[in-house]
């Protein structure tokens, strides 16, 4: 057995000294981001740092595996693990792209109104994708329909034409850090608003709007 596989790539985040993470923690972060993205109605902030680190780990491991003889038992374990991580990673990225396609005008609008220094929702690649998607949709609408319309009906405001993410959707969540005094808005006019405490480890069903900030700061996990 060559030593190639004994190097578990723990050199991760060397360039990012403030926040040292083991590869296992990194994978856990990716899985959290994956589930949150899958279940939240809106596009969440991009985790390109995590994505890049995971990619790095995978390429590192794959290049090690290249040097290993065929039929090595250890190599097959590693390959299986790589496949599993790759699955989570692509599922995560795919669910983000789906949301970008669904909400592209709003996503781009948020990007436009973003103040300098505020983190962007989109990774540079996703931003390029969203812009291109916007242009292509517009061109397509023009080519097939709009240019045959009367002159005063030839423009379409995509921001109004494409539905916004529905933040009032209900979500299931598990609490990772205890939260007090979460205000629950009433469903109907004859009910009153009330306050709940979210205990660590407890699970809840409530509106996404109420917990959106807690999702983005990692205090709760969508399930």
């Amino acid at each position: 057995m060559s030593d190639a596989l004994s190097d578990d790539g723990s050199d991760i985040n060397q360039d990012d000294s403030q926040d040292v993470m083991t590869p296992a923690e990194l994978i856990a972060k990716l899985e959290e981001a994956w589930l949150n993205e899958k279940f939240s109605p809106e596009l969440l902030e991009n985790k390109s740092e995590v994505v890049e680190c995971v990619m790095e780990q995978l390429t590192h491991m794959e290049s090690n595996l290249q040097r290993v003889k065929k039929g090595d038992a250890k190599a097959s374990f590693h390959r299986m693990e790589i496949d599993r991580i790759r699955f989570v990673l692509s599922s995560y990225l795919r669910s983000r792209l789906q949301k970008i396609e669904k909400f592209f005008p709003h996503v781009l609008e948020r990007e436009k109104s973003r103040v300098e220094g505020q983190p962007s929702l989109l990774s540079p690649e996703e931003f390029a994708f969203a812009k291109e998607y916007y242009t292509n949709t517009e061109t397509y609408l023009k080519a097939v329909a709009l240019k045959r319309m009367p002159l005063n009906l030839q423009t379409v405001d995509l921001l109004k034409a494409v539905p916004e993410p529905c933040l009032d959707s209900f979500v299931f969540l598990r609490v990772k850090e205890k939260q007090e005094n979460i205000l629950v808005e009433p469903e109907t006019d004859d009910q009153r608003e009330y306050i709940v405490d979210l205990e660590e480890g407890s699970q809840h069903l409530m509106r996404y709007r109420t917990v959106a900030p807690l999702v983005s700061n990692g205090a709760v996990q969508l399930i």
Binding site: F172, P186, E187, S202, Q203, H204, L205, M206
Partner: peptide
């Protein structure tokens, strides 16, 4: 507007997720 669902597992939530959430919406 709020329910606590301790001890419920992911697979159990998953059996009702789409139907329940879509209806609520």
């Amino acid at each position: 507007a709020h329910a606590q669902l301790d001890n419920l597992t992911l697979m159990e939530i998953n059996t009702t997720r789409e139907f329940l959430l879509d209806s609520l919406n």
